[in-house]
């Protein structure tokens, strides 16, 4: 019977304290709820003003997050989904599970924000990260011609991987296939997620890794290490805009609206830069943390709009698989 007692102990240890305060359930990606992510601070800040309990549920990554909501459908427990990006919003919209918002804000995004369902909370540019001091290629064509080695993420399992796929597609259109074919001998390996790829780069397995232009800020601010740099590509950098939306099926509609409005306020946006290591969607009154001014600013922004990204993604994936499977 020992296992039953243990099991009961486990169950009681995990059941949350649900008292009389209303509970707002937010599904998000796992690194958001992590103790080192924005989650704990966001929870404290929102609970200080909402007279409610904020229940953050972590689901792997953005793509898995959307799958979870589709799996649960109209019966979902979620009131809000936070952590999709613009490459996923077309598919998310098709589900018809999300409700329109009425949030307005003075966004600091690289594009004008017009989406009526999804509210942006942070953003960044994809970029290759390298160790300072070497000569770097200035674009994908130069990278493909060089012997610089890179490690990237798989677009089938990782949102940065999908971002890179659409970056090349947005920059090269019909020539994307040729670029990937030329890149294939630069790619050391392809990983399931960001963590593995970044870890391999830090171990010295490749010269560059696909990440964000904001990655050097972590090393500078948290580790006082200025040796990591983002490599600027002259064809422009693809942007990732992370968004949240209210579920149409929510039974906490007002609270959910309150959260979305809170999300673009300083209280939330101040937390983002040094926990999620991304740019806040709205620049807080006290500006960005020291160190962010050292980051590169791409010459131009590439971003397929949500509908286009949804349409392109399967074709781009087929090309990618074809070019790299040879």
């Amino acid at each position: 019977m020992k296992h039953l007692i243990l099991a009961a102990g486990i169950m009681s240890a995990t059941s949350a304290v649900a008292a009389d305060a209303p509970v707002l359930t937010v599904y998000t990606y796992d690194s958001f709820v992590s103790d080192w992510g924005p989650g704990p601070q966001v929870k404290a800040a929102f609970e200080a003003v909402c007279a409610c309990e904020l229940n953050l549920v972590g689901v792997e990554d953005g793509a898995a997050l959307l799958s979870r909501v589709r799996l649960e459908g109209k019966n979902t427990d979620a009131d809000i989904v936070l952590g999709l990006d613009t490459n996923l919003t077309a598919a998310a919209n098709e589900t018809g599970l999300f409700a329109p918002h009425s949030v307005t804000a003075d966004y600091a995004l690289p594009i004008e924000w017009t989406d009526t369902t999804f509210v942006p909370f942070d953003w960044g540019y994809f970029s290759f990260i390298a160790n300072a001091g070497a000569d770097f290629p200035a674009n994908f064509a130069e990278l493909a011609a060089s012997d610089t080695s890179i490690v990237i993420q798989d677009p089938r399992t990782s949102t940065p991987g999908l971002g890179l796929l659409l970056w090349v597609k947005a920059a090269y259109g019909d020539e994307a296939l040729a670029i990937w074919a030329d890149l294939s001998d630069n790619i050391v390996t392809v990983t399931k997620g960001w963590s593995e790829a970044y870890g391999l780069f830090l171990e010295g397995e490749a010269d560059m890794v696909l990440s964000y232009t904001t990655s050097p800020a972590y090393h500078l601010i948290a580790e006082d290490d200025a040796s990591k740099v983002a490599v600027s590509f002259d064809e422009g950098h693809y942007a990732q805009i992370e968004v949240a939306a209210k579920l149409a099926s929510t039974d906490q509609s007002e609270l959910a609206d309150q959260f979305l409005a809170f999300m673009v306020s300083d209280a939330f946006q101040n937390i983002i830069p040094t926990t999620n290591w991304m740019y806040p969607a709205v620049t807080p009154a006290n500006g960005l943390p020291d160190g962010f001014e050292t980051l590169i600013t791409p010459k131009s922004t590439l971003l397929l709009d949500a509908a286009m990204a949804g349409e392109m993604r399967d074709k781009a994936l087929t090309e990618w698989l074809g070019a790299l499977s040879r």
Partner: peptide, 22 residues
């Protein structure tokens, strides 16, 4: 990773989260 909320992390999950936070 399919089921966890913020409070109930096992050691392997915490290792992943540390990596995810650089």
């Amino acid at each position: 990773s399919l089921f966890a909320d913020a409070q109930t992390a096992t050691l392997p999950l915490q290792i992943y989260r540390l990596m995810g936070a650089y």
